[in-house]
Nucleic acid binder design. Sequence first.
RNA 1: GGUCUCGUAGCCAAGUGGUUAGGCACCGGUCUGCAAAACCGUCUACAGCGGUUCGAAUCCGCUCGAGACCUCCA
Length: 489
Amino acid sequence: MSTRKGVLAIYNTLSGKKELFRPIHEGQVGMYVCGPTVYSNVHLGNCRTFISFDLAYRYLLHLGYKVRYVRNITDVGHLENDADEGEDKISKKARAEKVEPMEIVQKYTLDFHDVMTAFNALPPNIEPTATGHIIEQIELINTIIKNGFAYESNGSVYFDVEKYNANQPYGELSGRKIEDLIANSRVLDGQTEKRAPLDFALWKNASDEHIMKWPSPWGLGFPGWHLECSAMSAKYLGEVFDIHGGGMDLKFPHHECEIAQGCAATGKKPVLYWMHANMLTLNGKKMSKSAGNSLLPADLFSGENMLLSKGFHPMVVRFFMMQAHYRNTLDFTSEALNAAEKGFEKLMLAIENLMVLVPSSNSSINTKVLIDGFYAAMDDDFNAPALVACLFDAVKQINAIVEGRATINKEDLSILQKEISVFVFEVLGLQRPVEKSDDQRLSNVMALVLELRGSARENKDWVTSDKIRDGLSNAGIVVSDGKDGASWK
RNA sequence: GGUCUCGUAGCCAAGUGGUUAGGCACCGGUCUGCAAAACCGUCUACAGCGGUUCGAAUCCGCUCGAGACCUCCA
C-alpha cells in the first residue's frame, strides 16, 4: 500500500484548508488525541470523537504508516470552572461518593475502556495519565518560566498571554484576536492572583482541604488542565509532532493554550495538523452531560432510555456514525438509528454473499472503479460517508451477481472480497454481530422443526406451518422462506 | 453582545461552479399459500431574495432560522 502514501488530504484547523498529509518522518505518524476526564461514565457524544479518530488511526495504519497513537486520561486538574475556587472534577466526585479520587479514576477508566471495546475502537499505543506525569509537567512549567512566559503568584503559576502574544499570535487556531478576547472575557471573582484575565493556570496552589496535591517548587498544588496534554504529547511524540486531535469544543481555549505552551517552551509550534471532530447532537443541541442532554452507551445498547423504543448493537451505532463526516455535526434520533440498522444489515448480508460467490469466466462489472472509489473517499479527509455510499454501489453489484444479472471472474472476485473486507472491517472498524447461537443442539432442533414445517407446507397444512412460524417468532426466532427452503435466525 | 459554522427531498446525510451521492421510510413490482425477509424500480432536493457567470446547492451580498465557542465539556 506504500504507493498510496502522499495522496491523503487532511483538513487542518490551523490553516482552515485541506492539506496533503506529509508526516515529519517518512512512513511514520505521531498522533495525539485528548482523551476523557474520567469523573463519570462517557456519554455517546464523547464516544463519537474517539470513534472519529479511531477511523483516522485505522486508515493511516491501512496506508502503511507506522503510527504512534497517544490518547491521554485526564485524572486531575480539570476544574469545574475558571474561578480560583473552582473545584477539580475528580475531587468533587470522590468527595460526593466518599471514596479515594483514584477509585473514581479507576472506575470510570474501566468504563471508558469497556465502551471503546464495544465500539471496536483500537486501543492507543500509549494511554498516559496526568497524575503519572507530574514531574514532566513541573519541568515544562520551569522551562516556560525560564523563557519568561509564565509567572508565579501566591503558589500558583500562570501563563502570561499578553507577553506571549507580543511575538506570537494567541488565538490563531480558533481564529480569535486577543483584543476581542480581552473585551469579552468575563471578570470573575477571586482572580486577583492573575495579572490579566486571559492568563491561564499552569499550576494551581492547593488549599488545605484539597485532596489531590503534589509538592512542587511553588508549594503543594496540582497541574493545570491545558498543561497536561503539552507535557504528555512532548514526552511521547516529541516537541513537534504530526497530528493532534480532539473534540471541536476543545479548540478554544484548550488547544490554543497547548500551542502557546509549546511555542513558549521550545519556540516551535508543536503540531503540524490539527484535527477537530464535530459534536453529536441530541434534540438539535450538543450532547452534554452538564446540560442534561446526553445518552449513555449502556442505555443505548439496552434500549433502556425514554428516547429509545429498543436497544441497538454497538456496531449499528458505529455504522450510524460512519454515515456522517467527522467534521459535521451528527444528529442523534431513534429513527436515524433504525435506518442505520437496516442499512448495516443490508451491507453485512451482501458481504456474506460476496464471500461465497461463484466466479464466472469474465466480469461484467468494473471492480477497479469500485475500489478506486473507496480510496478516493478516504483520501479526501477521511470521508467515511462517501466510502459508505461507494460500498452500497458495490452491494448493488454483488446482488446483481447473486441474482445472475451480472458476472465476476475469479481474479476480480478475489480482489473485491479482499478490499471490501479491508474497508468495512479494518478501516471502518465494523464487525459482524456475533450469531445468535452457535449451539449445535439448537441447530439440530431447528433443522428438524423446519423440516416438519416444510412437510406441512408441502401438504398445504397452513394451520400447522403458521403455528410453527408464529411460535418460533414468539421465542425470538425469525423464519425466512426463501427459494431454497426456509432459514432462521 | 463578540467570533464562527451550518440550513440539501418525509427522516439521517455526502457533495463546494457543469456527470441523478448513499441509507431509511413511502409507493409500485419480483418472489411467496399468505406474510415477513430478500431483491428490483420509483421519488431529481439544496432556507428566502438579489447579484456574478454561458452555467450556482456550490462564489458574493442581504434577510430569516438553527447551532458552536467566548465559563466545565469529546
